[in-house]
Amino acid sequence: MTTASPLPSNFSATSTLPPGATAPSSLPFIPQYSFPPFFTLQPVASTRSSQLSSWSTHIQSYCQHNRIFSLTLVDALNTPLFHNAQIHRRLNLRDAKVILAWMASAEGGNRAEFISTSTTKSKKAASGEEDGGKCWIYWRRPEEWAAALEEWVDRTGQKGTVLTLYEIVEGDASLKEEFWNMDEDLLRKSLAVCVRRGKAQIFGGEGSEGVKFF
């Protein structure tokens, strides 16, 4: 599966799957995914809130399964995530935005975060329509990633050694870890959490950083 994004690699949805990953067809979709009305945002408030949380679960498990760390909504609409070809139902962009906005809210557990286009290095493509089109999907929140990184460093006895960011996400040592092939910006975010907790320190300049865990 490809969430082909026209953006630079650090913003694209992950295109290289780790060796263990299987085709999306084997992903156990939640039962609601085959329920046609699931793709229409429900007008009744109580129903809608349950629908939103089901969507959140669905999006998180889909992204986790496919190692997707960020989504570009416009492109993602045509992937199985938002389009169930079997029952010919798809989510429209407006509804998808509503769902992600809900996920990004405290009510939705901050499981998503919109990436504002102005701060990105991407070409300012149609900024009006683009607004809110890209977002992080936090099937692990940066704090949780930070904890996972700390745990991994501890487990593999790499405390005190300087690791490059590349080593952490692309290296053989982390091949079996969930953060393997992680988006570099998300990694920076997570490491920043470690730094704030006083568990790590980052050296070097942009592009060639090293990190040391204590």
């Binding site: 329920f35 009305p37 699931f38 229409t40």
Partner: peptide, 8 residues
């Protein structure tokens, strides 16, 4: 909430 609507 006993039925859901599908508008597609």
């Amino acid at each position: 909430s006993l039925v859901w609507v599908d508008t597609q």
